[in-house]
């Protein structure tokens, strides 16, 4: 099977069509819009410098999602160290300072989500926001489908515990 370099025009089209969805996905993981925009823009800049080689152009969106997910991980890793010394330039959507954006109930869910381990948080966002299948989540996260299912189960149970509820209630 041969792989082709993704053309710039394909990247432009994908960006125009999916930029908002990608930024929204990134917001759910990093917590603020400015950082999410930075992550997505950085992904597209890197892809222009070094276009990916894909055997099927339909996989481009999955590739970009995986890249954005990875960008969010790196941002959170850097932020962990940075926020020890400085204040974030925009409060996370789950914080008390962002009360004007979300209702209390939604903020409680997002606050509980933010306290979950990184892998569980990513699995829940990909499944319940993007409505991806196990295979698609596994591709985006770079883990096996079986691991996706067990991660999802543990993530929901952990989220319920964080919110003081039982799963299925």
């Amino acid at each position: 099977m041969t792989s082709d370099v993704v053309a710039t025009s394909d990247l432009t089209s994908l960006y125009q069509e999916h930029q908002v969805g990608l930024i929204r996905m990134a917001v759910l993981l990093v917590g603020d819009e400015a950082t999410a925009e930075d992550v997505v823009q950085d992904v597209f800049l890197r892809m222009q410098d070094k276009p990916p080689r894909l055997d099927d152009e339909k996989k481009l969106l999955a590739y970009v999602r995986a890249a954005v997910l990875n960008g969010c991980r790196m941002t959170l890793r850097r932020r962990k160290r940075m926020w020890q010394r400085t204040e974030p330039h925009q409060p996370p959507v789950w914080s008390a300072e962002s009360a004007a954006i979300l209702s209390e109930d939604r903020r409680e869910v997002m606050r509980a989500l933010s306290r979950l381990p990184r892998r569980q948080r990513e699995a829940l966002v990909l499944r319940f926001y993007l409505e991806l299948s196990d295979d698609e989540v596994s591709q985006a996260m770079g883990i096996r489908p079986g691991t996706v299912r067990s991660t999802m189960t543990r993530a929901l149970a952990a989220l319920a515990r964080e919110m003081g509820e039982e799963v299925g209630t």
Partner: peptide, 30 residues
């Protein structure tokens, strides 16, 4: 409302705080 539905609702509402009308051009190749 189940926890899955509450989660979907919260995620959707949070995601919608990102304005889809804001113009964000494709960053130019450096």
């Amino acid at each position: 409302m189940s926890i899955e539905d509450r989660l979907r609702d919260a995620l959707q509402a949070t995601a919608n705080t990102v304005d889809d009308q804001t113009h964000r051009p494709l960053p130019e190749r450096r």
